[in-house]
Design a protein around this nucleic acid. Structure first.
Lengths: 276, 276
DNA sequence: GTCAACGATTCCAGATTATGCAATGAGTTT
DNA sequence: AAACTCATTGCATAATCTGGAATCGTTGAC
């Protein structure tokens, strides 16, 4: 296929440019995948003529590609001569891709960029058998002494990390630890920071964290240290991992601060996009 | 490309046969999509040589297809000359396909209410290229994770989910998988639960499931776990999705139990009313 | 009921790419 | 250092892909 001279016309307003042809690849496959990708970015079923225009291709060429996609199950057609849409094969490939996406390692690979950008110490946690569990540390220039090491678990309600897991995991997973921590708090006469009293207070805190998109704790959890955490979200809007930044300056965890902005952007970039 | 004389060799034991070339399609695209589909059915990242063998193709040919898939984002490579795996573009296409599935989306929005009410683990499945495919699940407390994961396919005749699809989908859709499972059952000398022997037994089971309005399996399919499934029906009385509850207490799947009542009510609420 | 318009689908001659084997490059093991 | 394995690329040849035109099917206007 010669380079396509037709100006790229978008139907739905998506901005993503057409990829150039692959070095060492197959040109007709490149063109075909452009059709598939364009279809995925449209809002729903589309007619052949509209899709061909959106792709900047003759309809006969687009039709041949669609025939192969239909045969493979990636596309289906609503009746003979009807509109085209993504099919069960697309669901299957997508689910396979999501299922084998390694959330933790994809974050860990670029984790140091975040700590370099913000100058804060970074912590990466997953949900383990005993609750929030540290799997990565990156100490920034600000030297912080703490007992937290790899494998440490953090409290659910009084740490920023724990609060993010509490907000973004189903309560069936977190409720046991929640009740244990509330019980210990009652026994010791302590109130767990903003969690206030009892289950209702904990749930209200979780609602505030979800609304904000992240959690913070000030210097009272670990004297002298402040922390902010945000979730890495999967296809079901559940936290697969939590990233936390730790520092000493309370301004770093104020809403709108550069560190908060960097943290939430970094976590959004590593989450599954456009979750239902 | 001439018809491929190389015997079809499977790496992971998946059964679905290689599709024949598309009438009115593009042969190189058919071959390329075979590579992609095969990769999706493998358990994880794969080397070029292994993937080429699994597809019955020369490595140089497979390599060119992969180059185009990488360029489109559907595949990524772990380092130069490293293994290949599905990429973010595949996630994007899969999510686009799922997000257009109106029945799945309406159920998913209220799915957690059902699992909270019953205290059981919930699965939501659609019919994919390889059969019943998990698109959502919510774990109950203390649920021991089995091999079920996003994208998993379930058997047609020996799982509750599969039996519901078998009962409420046209046989033109399910017959291939039915014959494959009956063949494997004969080869291994096993009888598939209540399916009894052969096609007649399978159809008799389907009739019983339709009459009851739901399917169950006791602890023999997955030792120690019981399950009940019901269909989300469209305007043609076909199962667009299936909801399954999984637990450990056999009383939960007895006729008339609160869980069965909640499941069938929930599915009826999400089905098209007054079908037929 | 007829006819025009529109969109999907198929045909076909010519243009162009895809292909498989061999060669090459890179990394690992002995 | 040599051998081996796997990924990547070159190249002559085989084979397909292509775009416009023709055809088919459906729908709506009259």
């Amino acid at each position: 296929m010669t380079a396509d001279p037709t100006p790229h016309v978008e139907v739905s307003g998506n901005v993503t440019g057409r990829p150039r042809e692959t070095a060492g690849g197959i040109q007709s496959l490149d063109a075909a995948l452009w059709v598939l990708t364009t279809m995925a970015r449209l809002d729903g079923a589309v007619g052949l003529s509209d899709l061909a225009r959106a792709c900047g291709m003759p309809a006969s060429k687009t039709h041949r590609y669609l025939a192969s996609f239909i045969n493979a199950g990636l596309v289906r057609q609503n009746g003979r001569s009807g509109t085209y849409d993504l099919g069960p094969g697309a669901i299957e490939i997508g689910l396979a891709a999501i299922n084998r996406h390694d959330f933790v390692n994809s974050v860990a690979d670029r984790f140091s960029e975040l700590t370099e950008e913000t100058g804060l110490t970074g912590l990466l946690c997953v949900w383990g058998n005993s609750g929030p569990t540290v799997v990565r540390w990156i100490r920034a220039a600000n030297f912080i002494v703490t007992s937290l090491g790899l494998g440490s678990t953090l409290p659910l309600l009084s740490s920023a990390t724990g609060r993010v897991f509490f907000a973004w995991l189903p309560e069936t997973i977190t409720e046991k630890l929640m009740h244990e921590e509330l019980k210990r708090a009652r026994a010791s006469g302590r109130v767990i920071g903003e969690a206030g009293s009892g289950v209702k207070g904990a749930r209200a805190l979780a609602a505030r964290v979800r609304e904000a998109g992240y959690a913070t704790v000030d210097g009272r959890f670990i004297p002298g240290l402040v922390a902010a955490s945000a979730p890495i979200l999967d296809w079901q809007d559940e936290a697969q991992a939590v990233v936390t930044l730790i520092g000493t300056n309370p301004k770093d965890i104020e809403p709108g601060s550069p560190a908060i902005a960097a943290l939430t952007r970094f976590c959004a970039e590593h989450s599954v996009p456009d979750r239902g």
